[in-house]
Amino acid sequence: GLTEEQKQEIREAFDLFDTDGSGTIDAKELKVAMRALGFEPKKEEIKKMISEIDKDGSGTIDFEEFLTMMTA
């Protein structure tokens, strides 16, 4: 499992990506986040990433899903 410290770091990354503070990361926010990390993702790639992570089919990534992605 994760230490509380690791969870906190992932939470901070999540909050950075969640620019509108909605508690979820949408495609637009993910794209901005990827760019910040030096990637140039295409729209299809973003969609694919979200569909792989987005277990509940909401079209957005919540913290639990993000946590799973970061620790996979």
Rank of each mutant, 00 (worst) to 15 (best):
G1K: 09
L2N: 03
L2T: 04
L2Q: 03
E4W: 10
E4C: 13
E4M: 10
E4V: 09
E4H: 07
E4S: 12
E4R: 09
E5L: 09
E5Y: 10
E5H: 12
E5W: 09
Q6D: 06
Q6E: 06
Q6K: 13
Q6F: 13
Q6A: 06
K7D: 02
K7V: 13
K7A: 07
K7L: 12
K7Q: 08
Q8W: 12
Q8T: 08
Q8K: 14
Q8I: 07
E9H: 09
E9G: 10
E9R: 15
E9M: 15
E9C: 15
E9T: 14
E9L: 14
I10H: 03
I10E: 00
I10C: 09
R11H: 04
E12Y: 12
E12H: 12
E12R: 15
A13D: 01
A13W: 15
A13T: 10
A13C: 14
F14D: 00
D15F: 06
D15A: 10
L16N: 06
L16E: 04
L16G: 05
L16Q: 07
F17K: 01
D18T: 09
D18Y: 03
D18K: 03
T19N: 07
T19L: 13
D20P: 01
D20L: 05
D20Q: 05
D20W: 03
G21M: 05
G21T: 03
G21Y: 05
G21E: 03
G21A: 07
G21I: 02
S22M: 03
S22K: 06
S22R: 08
S22I: 01
S22V: 03
S22D: 06
S22G: 02
S22Q: 02
G23K: 04
G23T: 02
G23H: 01
G23A: 03
T24Q: 06
T24D: 04
T24C: 10
I25H: 00
I25N: 00
D26S: 14
D26K: 08
D26I: 03
D26E: 06
D26F: 12
D26G: 10
D26Q: 11
A27N: 03
K28P: 03
K28F: 07
K28L: 06
E29M: 14
E29P: 01
E29V: 14
E29Y: 14
E29C: 15
E29T: 13
L30W: 05
K31M: 15
K31E: 15
K31S: 14
V32F: 15
V32M: 15
V32K: 15
A33Q: 01
M34I: 07
M34P: 00
M34V: 03
R35E: 15
R35S: 13
A36H: 14
A36G: 05
A36S: 05
A36C: 15
L37H: 03
L37V: 04
G38D: 03
G38M: 03
G38K: 04
F39C: 13
F39Q: 03
E40T: 11
E40M: 12
E40V: 13
P41L: 14
P41F: 13
P41M: 14
P41T: 07
K42W: 09
K43N: 15
E44L: 03
E44H: 07
E44T: 06
E44V: 04
E45V: 09
E45H: 11
E45L: 12
E45P: 02
I46V: 05
I46Y: 06
I46T: 04
K47M: 13
K47W: 14
K47H: 07
K47I: 13
K48L: 11
K48F: 07
K48W: 11
M49Y: 11
M49S: 01
I50T: 05
I50D: 02
I50H: 02
S51H: 08
S51D: 12
E52W: 15
E52R: 10
E52P: 01
I53T: 04
I53R: 06
I53L: 14
D54Q: 11
D54C: 15
D54S: 12
D54K: 12
D54T: 14
K55E: 05
K55T: 07
K55H: 09
K55R: 09
D56L: 13
D56H: 11
D56T: 10
D56V: 09
G57W: 11
G57E: 12
S58D: 06
G59Y: 08
G59I: 08
G59S: 09
G59E: 05
G59K: 07
G59A: 06
G59T: 09
G59L: 07
G59F: 08
G59W: 12
T60I: 07
I61D: 00
I61M: 04
D62K: 13
F63W: 09
F63E: 00
F63P: 00
F63L: 04
E64G: 07
E64A: 11
E64L: 11
E64N: 10
E65A: 14
E65I: 09
E65W: 12
E65H: 13
E65K: 14
F66W: 07
L67Y: 05
L67A: 03
L67F: 06
L67M: 05
L67C: 08
L67Q: 01
T68M: 12
T68V: 14
T68K: 11
M69H: 04
M69I: 12
M70Y: 06
M70N: 01
M70I: 11
A72T: 05
A72L: 13
